[in-house]
Amino acid sequence: MKNLLKRYLPQESIKFLSYLKNWNHKIYSFRDDINFETNFSDFFIWSNDCSKIEFVAENLRGLIIGKKIEVTHNFVFFNEQGQFITSQKYQTCNFFEKIVLDSPLENPKSKYFSFIHFVDSKTSLNDIFDNIGLNKLNDICEQNRGYTIYYPGENKYSAAVVHGNFGGISKNFLRRVKTNFRKHIYTPIYKFEGRENYDLVFNNPTKTNLVIKIIYNDSDKIINLNIPSLGTKYFSLSNYSGSISFESKLAICRALIFRNPAPNFKGTFDVFHS
């Protein structure tokens, strides 16, 4: 039956049926607008208490053809409430560029907020794929994942790095991550230690308000965070040992975890995706 359907149904119908199969577990909304000119950016976290933040950005155009191509790396920042703050641009032709980001707020009030990364260039991915004869490679677009390097103190060489994790936001702010009808519970496989302090930072890449319930699995405590679209909220955790779960309408809900967050001069800082 499955083979018969695959044989006689149009490709788009097969894709839609496949999407419906596990619709309550889908991370992204159904879309047919993926092409070389669109992009998916992860939703990265800015920490205002760090002395410096760098971003490792990739030049996909150069990497594909194996030659340096001038590109502009764009960063767009949103405040805690999800409103646009500012943007920054950096031109380079390197395959990878470690970019020192400027602090987006002169008088920072928020401890954490979020940003996206995307690439502009006179040389489009469409042209590149055309030139190398791969214009039939469809249903694919650029994904801007990147790595953020956080410097928690004054030492210029003391930092921790984390890769991009989740986002699906395009350069024109199209938000593809969807909320589901049924809730999921995500549990990082991590043992929180009572002697350490943690900031659990969540941002909301969806189009709607997002409620996240933080569940202490080894006590009865529950914390609720309400995050506007493109906004960022955090919860400070201390004096607790054990595991933590996150309940939300996202198919997968991961926090960025700062262990002994900045400012930290003791070398005990860490950052990782849960």
Binding site: L63, P152, A160, D270, F272
Partner: peptide, 16 residues
Amino acid sequence: QLSAEHTHPPSEFFYG
């Protein structure tokens, strides 16, 4: 200060 992170495999530069 320690830091550990893995790099993404090349397919992660793309979505679709």
